[in-house]
């Protein structure tokens, strides 16, 4: 990249953070599993040109300097230790990486991390807890709407959004609006039943 492009109009910090490491202010946000094992992911150096992003994730503010090429999914998984969103294709074709940005479901693998500056992100780690499952999580258990569990976080994030969008009134609607989330184990029948169970509870709530 030539210096000629280093003009003020790019309000982007271009220094390459090789030794200092990225400033991550995300304490307390790591999943229980990561904390329990006592091996919280280290601040990572960023190798490409970076951009500074500030955001809310699962109700907590965060900010970091991140490689401008990085996806939101790789930010969550590789930088913030939030491994609930999964990489199943990295091309927006499977839905395993589904998270909510400002309340809407998106494919985090096709979202530049840079785009979440000023946004609110919700991942599966921000949905329910072991003591108080979200109705959709409980419904997935009740209807065994999962097998290997790999696509499940994405399914649940999509399912919650599907209800909130008003696309869960009929089984046909649910099938259509859940078709962006592939379950290779083939739990679709259970997924539709789970959403039918949870939808009225979510709508009331």
């Amino acid at each position: 990249m030539s210096d000629a492009h280093d003009s003020k109009i790019f309000e982007v910090t271009r220094r390459q953070v090789l030794e200092v490491g990225t400033i991550v202010s995300m304490s307390g946000m790591l999943p229980a599993a990561a904390q329990a094992q006592g091996s919280v992911s280290q601040p990572t150096p960023e190798n490409g040109a970076t951009v500074r992003v500030s955001f809310q994730i699962n109700g907590q503010p965060g900010a970091m300097e991140i490689d401008a090429r990085a996806s939101l999914l790789d930010m969550l998984r590789e930088r913030l230790g939030l491994a609930g969103a999964k990489k199943g294709c990295d091309h927006g074709q499977c839905g395993a990486c589904t998270v909510h940005i400002d309340g809407r479901r998106v494919a985090s693998c096709l979202t530049l991390a840079a785009k979440v500056d000023g946004r609110t992100v919700t991942t599966i780690e921000g949905i329910g807890s072991a003591d108080a499952l979200h109705p959709m999580q409980q419904a997935f258990i009740d209807h065994d709407a999962l097998q290997c569990g790999y696509c499940t976080p994405g399914q649940i994030m999509a399912a919650i959004a599907c209800v909130k969008e008003g696309h869960a009134s009929t089984p046909e609607d649910i099938r259509e609006y859940m078709s962006g989330n592939i379950c290779r184990c083939g739990a679709y029948v259970g997924i539709v039943a789970a959403i039918q169970q949870a939808a009225p509870q979510i709508e009331r709530g």
Partner: peptide, 24 residues
Amino acid sequence: MRSLSYVRAGNVREAIEAFAAAGE
């Protein structure tokens, strides 16, 4: 994917100027 710069434009004019400034 090569390293790249990223900027968010606020309006059309800003975007067009940013594009011109960025070059190749």
